[in-house]
Nucleic acid binder design. Structure first.
Length: 577
RNA sequence: GCCCCCUUAGCUCAGCGGAUAGAGCAUCGGUCUUCUAAACCGACGGUCGUAGGUUCGAGUCCUACAGGGGGCGCCA
């Protein structure tokens, strides 16, 4: 990555300068390389001289002029192909300008690497899990879950691009009372379909979809569950109902392009005795206590926790948290993930401290479990918020929103905001502004490049492919400012991926995609690409277009959004026909 | 009462210690005989919630306060 290379150059320059006696032999603070916002301040800059001056002053070295330190560093910079010019500016910034001839050749590097460009491999050898969505398996998913799905899935994509091995997991909460209510409801709907007068329980699920599920049961199993008594039938219906609902969940999530590697059933933790095993482990470590007939986890001894937590009720039934303990015991001790990211909505925020306590009680580094918290999605229709509940059966599902606005627009929109910001998603606006949606802007940019490449080939120009002999000689023709600006922007992909991983959020990638598309538009405006009169320059520009297409397609893939090869507006299409 | 998040342009949001705070939308102008006008160019628009503090330097870090949201069960 360019930034790291520049950093290495600065570090080397400091050492050189100290060896030469041009800089005092004090220990230098870590070198930071910045991306100046302001044009005219270089492609990269370093504030090291100012920081060093402050450090020297504190160490009693008296007043030191940062600009002198900067000068000493610049004087001792090793020569490197990528740096074209350096300058000292302002209070002591060192600004670096990338060399044009180096930039030009990077186009060849991108085209050669193709969809591998940007994969830096920093996660090589690391095994991570991203657990996300994990909505109760009791029916279609509330639209808020779409944000969870988009975040978890895109984050997984980004991690994989960086070389991490990633497992995408859905935790199926089939062990608690909610799932009991689900099975009881399924039984009621099933019996009703077969002419019995069995009411849906009060704490059951009123939604129409339960009737569809019941219909599937009738279709596949006939009336056999009516031969049993109610409790026996409900037990028998549990695994059947679970299969049905999981199939529905998979389909709904696939509708927005999300596929899980593993569906982990809470119930399996009980069936395999893992809950007991995990609790025994904590007990041996002195983390549990019996009190008031219940078993408590002594969470209050850990920071940020003000109370203890019941893990086994006085009735003998384990709490949900006991399952969570076993689940994470499994993640870290049995499956041995290096790091686990749980994507949770803010309303679970109260559990975060307890999860950290649990990790410490396990004797594990709490940083190996990251809770990625995202805020709510407020759905706005007719100027007011839509508030609904699954239990009442009048919820708006992911499927509903996907049908209204499309999976691509939905994902892009959800991934444009930082996880901790509340999203106001105005459905009317989303539909009315369909053409103005930034996702189409980016997709259109990709389609436009495809179209240019196609036109070029019709005009008899060579398709842009990397060729070690030909391309370097062509690429030196890319001297227009819009060409060089575009190349600079393309090289930013690596840093963008790194940033997304640092923050465990891909939302910077959507902004980068818009930015890159805009930069391409300027190039498209200023530089005619496919010109048979100018085959050599055309070849160079086609390579640059191809490199841009590669990067745009890559970002869209990371975001889980399609990269169409063509897009036509309805009225325009008519004109063509 | 305690804990967490948010407050930046009319609206929706980026910006996570650097040099003159950005984008999209909206509004107002201007661009299609030429590789897709789902595009491009220009204009308008901000005492970054308030008050202190740390720093050579603060939208960014710390403290307090105000406003908004969420969370504090032998529920999940």
């Amino acid at each position: 990555m360019v930034r790291d290379e520049i950093k290495a150059l600065v570090e080397a320059a400091i050492t050189n300068a100290q060896d030469a006696g041009a800089l005092p032999d004090f220990s230098m603070p870590p070198v930071e390389i910045l991306r100046p916002k302001q044009e005219g301040h270089g492609d990269y800059s370093s504030n090291i001289a100012m920081i060093a001056a402050a450090a020297a002053r504190k160490a009693g070295g008296g007043k030191v002029n940062p600009r002198q330190i900067a000068q000493a560093i610049v004087d001792h910079l090793p020569a490197d192909a990528l740096v074209g010019k350096t300058e000292i500016a302002g209070p002591g910034f060192i600004n670096f300008y990338l060399a044009d001839d180096w930039l030009q050749q990077q186009v060849g590097v991108i085209v050669e690497q193709g969809d591998k460009f940007g994969n830096l491999g920093q996660g090589e050898g690391q095994y991570w899990q991203v657990e996300f969505v994990s909505a109760n398996p009791t029916g279609p998913i509330h639209y808020g879950g779409a944000r969870n799905a988009a975040l978890g899935d895109s984050l997984s994509n980004v991690l994989e691009a960086a070389g991490y091995r990633v497992q995408r997991e859905y935790y199926v909460n089939d062990g608690g009372s909610q799932f009991d209510h689900f099975a009881a409801t399924l039984y009621a709907r099933y019996a009703q379909l077969l002419g019995q007068d069995v009411p849906v329980p009060e704490d059951g699920y009123q939604g129409e979809y339960m009737i569809d599920y019941a219909r599937t049961v009738v279709h596949e199993y006939g009336d056999r569950f009516l031969q049993m008594d109610r409790d026996e039938a409900i037990d028998a219906l549990k695994p059947i109902g679970e299969d049905i609902v999981l199939a529905a969940l998979k389909k709904e999530l696939a509708g927005m392009g999300v596929i899980f590697d593993n569906w982990f059933r809470e119930q399996s933790l009980y069936d395999e005795g893992l809950v007991q095993q995990a609790l025994d482990y904590l007990d041996e470590r002195g983390e549990l206590v019996r009190r008031d007939g219940a078993v408590w986890f002594l969470s209050s001894k850990y920071p940020k926790n003000d109370k203890d937590t019941v893990v086994v009720r006085s009735t003998g039934k384990p709490t949900y948290f006991a399952g969570d303990i076993a689940y994470h015991y499994d993640k870290f001790f049995r499956r041995k993930f290096d790091k686990v990211v749980n994507v949770w909505s803010v309303d679970h925020q109260g559990h975060v401290a307890r999860m950290s306590a649990m990790m410490q009680a396990f004797g594990l580094d709490p940083d190996r479990l990251v809770i990625l918290m995202y805020d709510l999605v407020k759905l706005i229709r007719d100027g007011k918020e839509v508030k609904l509940s699954k239990r009442a059966g009048n919820l708006i599902t992911i499927d509903d929103v996907v049908k209204e606005v499309g999976a691509d627009a939905l994902r892009f929109n959800l991934l444009t905001r930082a996880p901790e910001s509340t999203i106001e998603f105005d459905l009317d606006l989303a539909i009315a502004q369909e053409k103005e949606n930034p996702v189409f802007y980016v997709q259109y940019g990709h389609a436009r490049i495809c179209s240019i490449l196609e036109k070029a080939s019709e005009k008899g120009l060579a398709t842009p492919e990397h060729d070690a002999k030909r391309t370097p000689a062509r690429l030196v023709l890319l001297t227009h400012p819009s060409e060089l600006t575009l190349i600079r922007k393309l090289l930013g992909l690596e840093e963008q991926i790194e940033t997304a991983i640092e923050r465990l959020s891909p939302h910077n990638l959507t902004h980068y995609a818009i930015d890159l598309t805009k930069t391409f538009s300027a190039f498209y405006r200023d530089c005619y690409v496919a010109d048979p009169e100018n085959p050599e320059l055309s070849e160079a520009r086609l390579l640059l277009s191809q490199a841009t297409r590669i990067v745009l397609a890559k970002i869209l893939a990371l975001l889980g959004i399609s990269a169409p090869e063509q897009m036509w507006l309805e009225d325009k299409k008519d004109l063509i026909d």
